[in-house]
Design a protein around this nucleic acid. Structure first.
Lengths: 157, 157
DNA sequence: GTGATTGTCGACTAAATCAATCGACAATGT
DNA sequence: ACATTGTCGATTGATTTAGTCGACAATCAC
């Protein structure tokens, strides 16, 4: 249940691209890998690997050469954090690569898969409702603020 | 964002212990490691490592020797899935071992930590409300059923 | 007490994943 | 032509994952 550096880097880079898209008013200006790496303090070569995965997933578009770089393939408000995470890690909340709804357990644990499905739904209730534009604009949706509003959410556990 | 085999094993073994506790009507009868391993089809030696971690976390109690075995340290209805997961993996939803509320990002990703905190809250909204007794009895609480009720929750994503 | 049973602990291993790094190559703009 | 920038595969070292093994310690039945 941890967030890997790669997942974190992917989202941060994508958010940075979102801001560039918004600042350009929708104009399609590519951002260089070097700029992204520097802006978010991510090792450049590692980031480039990640961005290539995002390209293959259809989340970013690229251009080579001078004046080349990376940009989002769609409007930032149409890309969710879940989209980015699934692009770099696999499906959410699998057990050994198996999706929870495909698990079969015997004995007392028969109903456990339902718990894992609910867990995944809990993840999705956040990740599928936050877009890159939300984060870049600093305007988080209720799916987030409702959960962080509870003091308990900030407790160290 | 995956559930490791270890985490899954830990919960399944704990649920099996919960059922034994419930069937015994609260009487404290230890269950052998071999029985647990067989009942849930978990490699026995690996499971014993896990059960030792659960003991160190105060979730199970053990007895050696003939007539020895494992049992829950507390009533099954007082132990949540979150308790078990935190015992075998660390805190939920950290980025490289750092808890989300301690992260600081610059630039466009400034608000990202709040998203991770909300994510963790989403996990907790499920994991802290399901007890071992709930699973062993096959009576899942609303925190779970409300989320699995949605057809979308079962979709393959 | 003896012996069988069962958990404890540390060491060990193989494989996968994580977190990068590197270099040759392919596009692209000036 | 040339400098710039992304692409791709290979490689690396550390860590985690998923186990296995064996000596040892506790406990019970007899």
């Amino acid at each position: 249940m941890r967030i890997t550096a790669k997942a974190d880097y992917a989202v941060r880079a994508a958010v940075e691209l979102a801001r560039a898209q918004i600042e350009a008013g929708g104009a399609d200006v590519p951002v260089k890998g070097e700029h992204l790496a520097h802006a978010q303090d991510i090792p450049q070569k590692f980031l480039e690997n990640i961005l290539t995965e995002l390209r293959r997933a259809g989340i970013v578009r690229t251009r080579r050469g001078a004046e080349g770089g990376y940009r989002l393939a769609r409007p930032a408000k149409e890309i969710t954090v879940a989209d980015v995470l699934r692009a770099v890690e696999g499906p959410l909340a699998g057990v050994q690569g198996i999706q929870p709804q495909d698990l079969r357990y015997g004995g007392a644990a028969e109903r456990l898969p339902e718990v894992w499905v609910a867990l995944r739904a809990g993840l999705r209730s956040v990740l599928e409702h936050v877009t890159l534009a939300d984060i870049a604009n600093g305007k988080l949706p209720k799916a987030v603020t409702a959960k962080t509003a509870d003091d308990d959410a900030w407790e160290r556990r």
